[in-house]
Nucleic acid binder design. Structure first.
Lengths: 179, 179
DNA sequence: CTTGGAAAGTCAACAAGGCTGACATAAGAT
DNA sequence: ATCTTATGTCAGCCTTGTTGACTTTCCAAG
């Protein structure tokens, strides 16, 4: 694999390319592949705890996502949720209908624009949200604590750089303290 | 929500708890929640590019995962793949059958134990793997480059701490230079 | 050599959660 | 009055996961 002096793997930018003294060893194909696999395995852990709880309640990840973002942005409209979740309205509607029927979510008709439905968690919905996010936060907190503040800052930087621009807009939007 | 001096949210370990001079601000519920949302949005980006390519070929993420880990561990058995992927044999078999029928994967009967099937990518399979991992690596590399080596190290640390122990074993196993 | 059990494959049936397309309704906007 | 938007809904399809039952192959222990 090392043809011309250790540089020049098969595809494009894989070479180390000792540029201006900086080693850039973290950009080798091997490092990146390990990052890809770490994402895969970590995401499994990330969803494992909520998945167990959801299963007990007869829900799935789709319900979790809806509950999470309704909790984060109480009164959000269906359309807004649609663009955050990136699914079709039919898909979201199926989930939302179940949550409303089960009394976890309330869909209030808009005052200004009566076509809109503003979504809120009921007390029962908020209780499930607590349970789910407690479980997910606990693992996250353990990981954060184990890795330390510097690692956490890096973690967040890489994740944000990995998002599609549109998703980053949503992500930044959620961080607004306006609400 | 702010009862006793701005600290003391609802659930457990959320308080800042200024322990021995270290600020631990990175362990607040708010920081953790942002990490959770960052994971969610970033994972979407992480899978977006391969998903597009897979779609053109009439495959899904399940096929990608199989192809990836067969590429990583040529000659791996079905059982080993099963434990890495964490799905049922019926689910994996469906995917594997399609890949074998399409000539992307070869399943050789074991020499020592003839019950086992050892899985290999064919030339066509390796070509698709290239295409998929090139796309995924490109985004990863861009994120790594934007964030820098220190951030990348932190990223990896947090991800590894987030895995289930069994998944971490698989992850570490893949990094072995033995084989 | 026989038999128990492991590895693998297969068939059937089902569910969640994506998708598309078509259509209905209400209401804001022009 | 008409166009457009927001939402809901019905029908049908696909992928990918599940469980359960059964078969074949074949190593290994008795």
């Amino acid at each position: 694999m090392k043809s011309d002096g250790g540089v020049g793997m098969s595809q494009g930018a894989s070479a180390v390319a000792q540029k201006s003294g900086e080693s850039l060893l973290f950009l080798t194909d091997d490092q990146i592949r390990k990052g890809i696999e770490a994402m895969f395995f970590a995401y499994r852990g990330f969803t494992a705890d909520p998945d167990r709880i959801l299963d007990e309640h007869g829900y799935g990840r789709a319900h979790h996502r809806a509950i999470h973002f309704i909790h984060r942005s109480p009164g959000t409209t269906v359309n807004n949720l649609l663009s955050i979740l990136g699914v079709t309205k039919q898909s979201l509607n199926r989930v939302l209908r179940a949550l409303v029927e089960d009394g976890l979510v309330e869909a209030r008709i808009g005052h200004r624009d009566k076509r809109e439905r503003h979504l809120y968690l009921t007390e029962a919905g908020a209780a499930l949200e607590q349970k789910l996010s407690d479980a997910q936060r606990e693992r996250m907190r353990a990981a954060y604590r184990a890795a330390g503040p510097v690692a956490v800052a890096g973690f967040r930087q890489v994740l944000e750089a990995m998002m599609d621009p549109e998703m980053r807009r949503h992500f930044d939007g959620l961080s607004d303290s306006s609400r």
